[in-house]
């Protein structure tokens, strides 16, 4: 499997700021993977995405990009990426179709009308002749997702793509992304606060807190220190007996290592970090 990008000890400080926005971040993404970037507000997720997109300049040693995704200047080749950063602006006087066509015109998109029609249907967008200015915030967000996907990118960088969407729309977005991955073999980096959905969508995760990666692993490696014990109790002993400790004659018949939920791992990591930072 090819590594699409790798951050090695990446640190970043915004101009006129004394504190580190990112502090020694080590993170990589394999081709075909879906990485969930998690963390509270202000953790550094958007900064990380902006650095990856080339919007913020960093030491070239801190970021390596696979040849396939690199342009001659050594930064990310934006023609292969679909990018949705936070609070993207729109052109209120353009219709949905005009807006998507304008952005698609900078890529090599075959049959853009068909592609827009497909995306509009999947995302349940209103009539594509509707002006962007007349759309609700949630619908505008869906148009932005369509914009990021209209040229069928190889790599998608999405910053809170479902933040303003209702559950049904969120489901439609995740299904669309799953199909895009299946059909185009795409690689996804997504940040979101909806952990239950991230657990379903992503193949790996990274928790960022105050610019540091607290934990980063495959979703399949989500484990807890707790175990599930299957116990056979002697006759006449009720489960109430556990209140006084492990019953003497009880037998452990099966031990199952527990799979933690992403939410519990996230909360645990953040609480531990808050404790450490508070000290």
């Amino acid at each position: 499997m090819q590594t699409v990008f790798q951050f090695s000890g990446l640190s970043y400080t915004y101009p006129k700021s004394n504190s580190l926005a990112l502090d020694g971040v080590n993170l990589s993404l394999e081709s075909g993977d879906s990485l969930a970037l998690l963390g509270p507000n202000g953790a550094g997720k958007t900064t990380l995405l902006r650095i990856l997109c080339g919007r913020l300049a960093v030491n070239s040693n801190a970021l390596s990009i696979a040849e396939e995704f690199k342009n001659p200047e050594g930064t990310l080749d934006l023609s292969k990426c679909g990018i949705l950063l936070e609070n993207p602006g729109t052109y209120p006087r353009l219709s949905i179709a005009e807006y998507l066509k304008f952005f698609a015109s900078f890529y090599d998109v075959k049959d853009v009308d068909l592609q827009i029609e497909k995306l509009a249907k999947r995302l349940e967008l209103p009539d594509v002749s509707t002006a962007m200015g007349a759309l609700s915030q949630g619908t505008r967000q869906k148009v932005q997702i369509a914009r990021a996907l209209v040229h069928r990118p190889r790599l998608l960088l999405l910053d809170e793509p479902v933040a303003n969407l209702d559950p049904g729309a969120r489901e439609a977005v995740w299904e669309l992304l799953a199909d895009w991955k299946k059909e185009d073999g795409g690689t996804l980096l997504v940040s979101s606060h909806i952990l239950s959905e991230m657990e379903q969508v992503a193949t790996s995760y990274a928790i960022l807190y105050k610019g540091k990666i607290l934990r980063s692993e495959k979703m399949s490696e989500l484990r807890t220190d707790e175990f599930i014990l299957h116990v056979q109790l002697p006759e006449g002993v009720s489960p109430e007996a556990f209140k006084n400790g492990f019953p003497a004659d009880a037998k452990i018949t099966h031990v199952e290592s527990g799979k933690a939920s992403l939410e519990s791992v996230y909360r645990g990591a953040i609480q531990a970090a808050e404790g450490d930072f508070g000290k």
């Binding site: 993207p88 602006g89 900078f106 914009r147």
Partner: peptide, 9 residues
């Protein structure tokens, strides 16, 4: 909207 333009190839 300027950032969207800056993210074009």
């Amino acid at each position: 909207s300027l950032e969207l333009l800056m993210l074009l190839p």
